[in-house]
Amino acid sequence: MKIALGPILYYWPKERVEEFYADAARWRVDIFYLGETVCSKRRALRRQDWLAIAGRLRDAGKEVVLSTQALLEANSELLQLEQFCNNGEYPVEANDMAAVQLLAGRVPFIAGPHINCYNGETLALLAGLGASRWVPPVELSAASIGALQGQRPAGMETEVFAYGRLPLAFSARCFTARADNVGKDECEQRCIHDPDGRPLHTQEDQRLFTVNGIQLQSGTPCNLLGELGPMAAMGVDIARISPQAEGTEAVVRAFRARLDERPAPELPPLDYCNGYWHGAPGMAWHGNEPNPG
């Protein structure tokens, strides 16, 4: 099984992004997804900057995919999407049907986690349009993914979101700006100060969600390290690790060790979730091992 680093879901300064990928080029990661998928107001890196990072990773022998935005509202966002889809060098991860429309029948593409592919007929449709890989929606269980593995078209790879805070929802509203009592038009990209998003707690201080601009994520990171065995057994090709502000290298090491059947180093002692995989509420933790938190 291969390891992929998903797109950075948070807004980091340009230098931090470049340093992150300079480091990550040396990790045992096979596939890199690059680009801004959440908010078009995050412009620290321009298209040329992403392409420069892509070039360096490719020179380091990595597979590179350009990820695209999930919620496309403005015409300027569609034009940006077209430029990414027409890049001519790298495959593209579609996260909206607009991207599928632009890519279909022209170049192979990856159907990302925000394309609602819940059944074999949709998977076959996407394959017919040129999808060579798909990432199931985060709420799909192992049982459903397993059933879909049995129906998957020849040549279709499956990649599962295996580590990181789950992207659960998108809105027109910016919840980071709202937390500071300003509107989205006055946001001044304040999410750049939350490199891991901003925790949202209940009135009993239970960590419920994570605010990431117009996106809400799970409160705790999803961690499927303990499920890599069953995942491999059902023929999943790739485990996706979603970059976090700190400790991503340790996560990559742990996943790689487990895949190599070596003793895995300890992960940071956090509260994790893996409920979706087990067909339970996503926030739940199931398994033989206690939650490290």
Binding site: E139, F170, S171, F209, G275, P281
Partner: peptide, 21 residues
């Protein structure tokens, strides 16, 4: 609905059941 309909898994994250599923 504050979220983009069809792209909201908040409910299944807490309860196991969502609009999509």
């Amino acid at each position: 609905c504050v979220m983009v309909e069809g792209r909201c898994a908040l409910s299944s994250y807490i309860t196991g059941r969502s609009p999509n599923g």
